[in-house]
């Protein structure tokens, strides 16, 4: 009798633990299936439904920093996740605006948001709005006007406004010593690629994010191309002045001893003669940078 009782309790135990294991396994299965089925807009636009910061601020009682940390964590996942669309970037801006509404002293958000929107996403206006808000709330953080300077100098082609922000940054505690000189050079030599190169290299050294650094390296290479093109066009002009005709190819400049060598093209293309005659272009990068040209 006792033996059969023992058997029964073991059987019951097996039954119950089997049931539990089955339930847990099917729950996990259902979760995985639901994950796949969850429509993408639910995930991507999750942030789009974020209410305004002024409301959240009240709703989270005293836990503003934690709330802004959590939203920011979510936003960072999102920024890494998508090949962004214009709407996507606008929502990203919205999130960063909300986060900094809740916690206006969250400097990292201004720094990351300002550079990502400006350098990477080409949403300069939003980048400027965010950074200006950062400067208002954090008047001692020199990187914020420094990044604003980038937006004005590089994206908006306004070296005068840029220099204003560099001067502002250089007056703040902790600002690097090279800033005032850089500001001066950028105002005076607005059309000089060398000044732009120096600035971009400084900015590159200031950035930690790998993808931002990549974007900046690309910018640096574009400026290098611009510098090379100017150098080669100068050579072409001298050739024309000497021989009263345009060279058939750039190698002719080297053969005639006008330039010592054709510089390698940093993006992997080559420099060739362009049209109209007398101009030089790169096969890899067709645009010409506006900002570094003298007006």
């Amino acid at each position: 009798m006792r033996v059969s009782n023992g058997m029964a309790s073991i059987r019951q135990w097996l039954l119950v633990s089997g049931l539990l294991a089955g339930l847990v396994a099917s729950a996990i299965g259902a979760l995985m299936a639901a994950e796949r089925m969850r429509p993408p807009e639910v995930r991507a636009l999750e942030l789009a439904y974020l209410p305004k910061g002024e409301y959240i601020k009240i709703a989270v009682l005293g836990y503003r920093q934690i709330a802004s940390d959590l939203i920011w964590l979510k936003a960072v996942q999102y920024l890494g996740e998508i090949h962004q669309t214009p709407e996507g970037w606008l929502w990203a801006y919205h999130v960063m605006d909300v986060v900094t509404d809740i916690d206006p002293q969250f400097v990292a958000v201004y720094q990351a948001g300002g550079t990502i929107l400006g350098v990477w996403a080409q949403r300069v206006q939003e980048s400027i709005l965010l950074l200006e808000k950062g400067v208002r709330h954090n008047p001692n953080e020199w990187t914020l006007p420094f990044f604003l300077g980038y937006d004005y100098f590089y994206e908006l082609h306004d070296p005068v406004a840029a220099a204003k922000y560099f001067r502002m940054a250089s007056a703040m505690p902790g600002a690097p010593a090279y800033l005032p000189k850089l500001a001066a050079r950028m105002t005076v030599e607005a059309g000089d690629p060398a000044a732009a190169l120096e600035f971009l290299e400084r900015l590159h050294a200031q950035t930690q994010d790998e993808r931002l650094q990549e974007a900046l390296v690309r910018r640096i290479k574009e400026v290098l191309i611009e510098r090379d093109i100017r150098f080669l066009e100068e050579g072409v002009r001298r050739y024309h002045a000497r021989y009263k005709r345009w060279p058939a190819g750039l190698q002719e400049l080297v053969r005639k001893g006008i330039v010592t060598a054709i510089p390698p093209e940093p993006l992997g293309g080559t420099y060739v003669m362009g049209s109209p005659e007398g101009t030089v272009k790169s096969t890899a990068f067709t645009g010409r940078l506006q900002v570094h040209r003298k007006p």
């Binding site: 639901a34 429509p39 639910v42 636009l45």
Partner: peptide, 29 residues
């Protein structure tokens, strides 16, 4: 998204509900 009138597919609703109910059952056991 429901507040702005965007629904989810019924299959999703069913699977997500199933997940919740299975989890509930496991907790009850």
């Amino acid at each position: 998204q429901a507040a702005v009138g965007v629904g989810v597919p019924y299959a999703y609703q069913a699977t997500a509900s199933l997940y919740g109910l299975l989890y509930t059952a496991a907790l009850l056991v």
